[in-house]
């Protein structure tokens, strides 16, 4: 091969690569940016499982990676509206291709159930996904526990949550803390105490770092809620004594009710509303937004 030929080959290769990059920049005609990334080639799990032949679990892995990418990309996107529109079909495909893909059920349920913008805000889809997992593996107590969890945390349906915790507790190999959890949820559903119990179990039992940090985050939120409640008690007492809420934390410190500037579990100072005497998180705090209902009752 002569030098000219070699040079020609290199030039053509560079040109082809450059053109490909150019094509990428131009985008497909008539479609807004980002739309091309949201194509789902297959929507039917039945077709997918047949087309995958003996490569089903590998195809499931591919769809799982696509699920994670879709979730992560949507979550990190700058757009105000985060549709997560492919989350449910992708998870459905993943779990149809590999019905024993436990992580896909459990993480997928969390992605689906979380309120926007962190998730799709579809607890119904999360429950359906976990129930599909229970059909494939009827003895999997984790799925029943997770269904109870979704009912508890995102639907605030504490009766259903208690029922599912009990079902999970009745399954073989279920851990022994599930029965007390069911009892507490039934007796004082929605209390911060049962929520704390729930998350503490998640942190103790979770087998993925991601879930552990999620649980720790929820526990910090619960701590913040406890602290906010305690601080608001202080401001109410102050108001009862002085007629007006404290104008600032310094006023509370000077009155001897506080020893210093109150910090949330993330280390940011709490905000005091001097007009109403209410307490909230600093907007820089990562604990935002605090859950508004479930587990907020003392």
């Amino acid at each position: 091969m002569g030098r000219t030929t070699a040079l020609l080959i290199v030039c053509l290769a560079v040109a082809a690569t450059g053109l490909q990059a150019g094509l990428d920049r131009v985008g497909r005609p008539g479609l807004p940016d980002g739309v091309t990334g949201n194509i789902l080639y297959l929507r039917s799990p039945g077709v997918a499982t047949r087309a995958a032949l003996s490569y089903r679990s590998l195809a499931a892995d591919v769809y799982w990676i696509r699920t994670l990418q879709h979730y992560g990309r949507t979550k990190l996107s700058d757009e105000a509206r985060k549709p997560y529109d492919l989350l449910q079909p992708l998870l459905d495909l993943t779990t149809s291709l590999d019905p024993r893909f436990n992580v896909a059920y459990r993480f997928g349920a969390i992605f689906l159930a979380e309120d926007p913008p962190a998730g799709a805000g579809r607890p119904d889809q999360a429950i359906a996904l976990l129930e599909k997992g229970l059909v494939a593996q009827p003895g999997k107590w984790e799925f029943a526990q997770d269904i109870g969890f979704v009912h508890y945390w995102w639907r605030h349906d504490f009766d259903s949550a208690a029922r599912w915790f009990q079902r999970a507790a009745d399954m073989p190999d279920a851990p022994n803390w599930l029965a007390p959890l069911a009892a507490v949820t039934l007796a004082q559903g929605g209390s911060r105490e049962s929520a704390r119990l729930l998350w503490q179990q998640v942190v103790a039992e979770a087998d993925a770092d991601w879930l552990v940090s999620q649980g720790e985050f929820r526990l910090r939120q619960l701590d913040a809620l406890d602290q906010i409640a305690a601080l608001e008690t202080l401001t109410r007492e102050y108001e009862a004594r002085r007629g007006d809420p404290p104008a600032s934390w310094e006023a509370l410190v000077q009155s001897g009710a506080l020893r210093g500037m109150p910090l949330d579990p993330d280390g940011f100072p709490y905000r005091l509303n001097p007009y109403w005497g209410t307490v909230s998180l600093d907007e820089r705090s990562t604990l935002n937004p605090l859950p508004t209902d479930a587990g907020t009752r003392p």
Binding site: S57, L58, D61, W64, I65, V103, A208, W210
Partner: peptide, 20 residues
Amino acid sequence: QLTAGQDVKIIKDLGLAAIG
């Protein structure tokens, strides 16, 4: 990086599929 702790499962899937 990608797989939320599922790399061993995926390597197994991939390895067995590739052997076949």
